[in-house]
Amino acid sequence: MPESSVPAPTTCVRRKNERTATLPGILVTIIALGLLGFGAWYAGCALLQNRPMGRDVKASNENRALAHLKRIQSAQHAFCDRHPRGEYARFVPHLWQWVDPRGTPVRLDLIPRRLAMAMGATTAVDGYYFVDIRSRTGAGQAGEQAIDYNHQWAVAALPAGFGRTGRIVFLADQTGRRYATMPPRPPTHYPDDPVAAGWIVVDTKNDLKVLLH
């Protein structure tokens, strides 16, 4: 058949071929835009999480941390009254839900679950999380002395973002006192006598203002 007699593709066929040829490009574009959007969202979240907080926000977090410690202190005394052997709770979460000697969970609700679960920076409450202290350093003692939960307990409150969500480290124990200090970094040891080690006793917002100034 002569070359001039070969029929040319119809307009419909050409358009179909064009659409088919551009589908991979469209998919690549959609995926690229999705990745860019996710990257922008993730970067924004990281920026918000790490941005410095204002002085008023830090002060509010510190006041609330002090109030949370007061609640933990009251809960520890109530726990001791209920415990079969008169012991204090070894773990802050046990003030919300304890496990009895038979391994049975027992809801106590001495503190809210949210506070009980604030055991690390990712689960902090009002910019602070709470750590069970297992041993304390004492004057004239070699090394650290383990906490005896028949007579003692100690919990520290630490900023989730040190210097960002709070500037103060708190310590509470069975004495009913609450202590505070402003170290340059999170403590690695907690003194048996905080006042002798330079901590101050705090009970009100005004006490915190004295520490900050």
Results as ranks from 00 to 15, higher is better:
Glu87Arg: 12
Trp96Arg: 04
Asp100Tyr: 02
Val92Gln: 00
Arg107Met: 12
Thr104Ser: 07
Gly86Gln: 14
Pro105Ser: 04
Leu108Ala: 03
Leu108Ile: 02
Arg82Phe: 09
Pro101Leu: 09
Gly86His: 07
Thr104Ile: 09
Glu87Leu: 11
Gln97Val: 01
Gly86Lys: 10
His94Ile: 00
His77Tyr: 08
His83Asp: 15
His83Thr: 08
Arg90Ser: 09
Pro101Lys: 05
His83Trp: 10
Thr104Cys: 07
Arg82Met: 14
Pro93Arg: 07
Val92Asp: 01
Phe91Ala: 15
Pro93Lys: 14
Asp100Pro: 01
Pro101Glu: 02
Arg90Glu: 09
Arg107Glu: 12
Phe79Thr: 00
Arg90Cys: 06
Gly86Glu: 08
Ala89Gln: 03
Trp98Gln: 05
Cys80Arg: 14
Cys80Gly: 09
His83Asn: 15
Leu108Gly: 06
Leu95Gly: 05
Gln97Cys: 00
Gly103Phe: 04
Leu95His: 00
Val99Gln: 15
Phe79Ser: 09
Val106Glu: 10
Phe79Arg: 08
Val99Lys: 12
Leu108Thr: 04
His94Pro: 01
Cys80Ala: 14
Gln97Phe: 02
Pro93Thr: 07
His94Glu: 10
Asp81Ser: 11
Pro84Arg: 11
Trp98Cys: 05
Pro101Trp: 06
Arg90Tyr: 02
Arg102Pro: 01
Val106Asn: 02
Pro84Met: 09
Thr104Trp: 02
Trp98Arg: 01
